[in-house]
Amino acid sequence: MLRRSASFGGLLVILATAPVLATHPEATLKSVRTSAAAGSAIPLQGEKFEAGQKVKLALRGALAEYALVEATADGGGLFSMQLEIPRDVRPGQYLLVAIADDGDAVAKLDLTVEPAAPMVAGDHEMVGEAGASHDMESMARADDLPIERSRAGLEWGVIGLIIGLAGGLGIAMVRRTA
């Protein structure tokens, strides 16, 4: 009975995952670079995609996602390109993902985006040490970022419940030992 149940369960698992595995074989994204400045380009290779598969490339960060270009795999499931990182991409840690038509991210690559290099030589005022210091000081901020905080009603409720329970229980315990 147990062996039959295990076999049935295993069959269910295979049936559930087979469509996913069949649709998305182990595609990969590769690059000789692990970091790039915003506004620059990196060499990118795609391997083990389906023949003729079209994927959308995107940069996924903690706070934002940037849509990039489309790539099409050849008959061997390969593509190769110079991928432009838009200049307005916020510096940080990203996942470069290849998104298939069904919305699944079928391949990923870690990429660090560094600040964009200055566009012209005079962009950064390096007029001696004092001048550079002044320029950096004017860019540095000691105050806090303006952050818009918004909480769902459920969050308020849970937080209020935790605070209320803790306070109420605490008062009851102190009064009990008074």
Binding site: I163, A166, G170, A172, M173, T177
Partner: peptide, 12 residues
């Protein structure tokens, strides 16, 4: 018990 009570009030 008393300490736990005071701690919970402080935590609140």
């Amino acid at each position: 018990v008393r300490l736990t009570g005071v701690a919970l009030i402080s935590g609140a």
